[in-house]
């Protein structure tokens, strides 16, 4: 009965069993370690190998980069509501830079900022800013004029109108932009970490994977992948879903 209600859990169990069977048939642990040893490794690495610390470094870098991007995108949006030239200019910039994959700009960023967190943050900002702006711009262009006029009627300045009318009014597009941006940032960060190796005193989850591959520790690689999946699921199902429930669904933007 419980499994009927939680289909996802059922599928997960099925996947683990399937993996176990295939790995037993293949019978080459260095190519395909069995489920049990992957979970053992995961547990061991979490406790002794400081896997959680690697994960924390990557996660923290994304959160900081994401926050900077959100502040930047809001500042650009405010400027673009007030001045049409700003909207035109940033739309043009967006059309050039949005298609550029994060990892492709990494060599330039390294020359500009060196190997370190500055480059990582620049990379995250590049990955996140454009998707958010794309969404924000289309939301601003289709924003109900009547709502903006209501703000004028109550003598609100541009800043007040932005905070109390435009930000909540463009929330659906804003959240969609952050979701796309975060997924892009995650990919970019892990690639960059594989590229950089150790930054400061430790490396992120990308560096962890590179190290495990070098020692041909296949179970270790899978343990790292599990962590990446867990971080993704945590953000998607807990953070974003919760924000959407508290805003969009409550306001009837999404039913």
């Amino acid at each position: 009965m419980y499994f009927m209600k939680n289909k996802k859990l059922l599928y997960l169990l099925l996947l683990i069993v399937l993996w176990q069977i295939i790995s037993m048939i293949v019978d080459q642990p260095q190519l395909m370690p069995d489920s049990i040893s992957i979970f053992q490794k995961f547990w061991e690495e979490m406790i002794n190998g400081k896997l959680w610390l690697y994960a924390f470094y990557s996660f923290a870098a994304i959160i900081i980069g994401l926050s900077i991007s959100i502040i930047l995108s809001l500042a650009i949006a405010l400027l673009s509501i007030k001045y049409t030239w700003s909207m035109d200019f940033f739309k043009f910039l967006n059309s050039i830079l949005h298609p550029l994959p994060g990892i492709a700009v990494l060599p330039v960023l390294i020359i500009w900022f060196g190997v370190g967190y500055s480059s990582i943050f620049a990379l995250i900002i590049h990955s996140v800013l454009w998707p958010i702006l794309t969404n924000l711009f289309s939301a601003i262009e289709t924003f109900p004029k009547t709502l903006s006029k209501v703000g004028d009627n109550y003598e609100m300045g541009i800043l007040k109108k932005f905070i109390f009318i435009y930000i909540p009014g463009t929330m659906p597009s804003f959240i969609a932009g952050i979701k796309t941006g975060w997924a892009r940032a995650f990919r970019a960060v892990i690639s960059a970490e594989m590229f950089f190796g150790i930054i400061g005193s430790s490396g992120g989850i990308g560096w962890y994977l590179v190290k495990k591959r070098a020692f041909l520790d296949t179970s270790g690689i899978f343990a790292g992948l599990i962590v990446i999946i867990l971080i993704g699921m945590f953000l998607e199902s807990f953070i974003f879903d919760r924000i959407e429930k508290l805003t969009l669904e409550k306001w009837g933007f999404k039913i």
Partner: peptide, 19 residues
């Protein structure tokens, strides 16, 4: 400029804040 002494009511329903 528009001000609080002369309030406009529009035909379109999106004059209310959905949030």
């Amino acid at each position: 400029k528009p001000d609080k002494n002369r309030i406009m009511i529009f035909q379109s329903f999106d004059q209310l804040m959905p949030w």
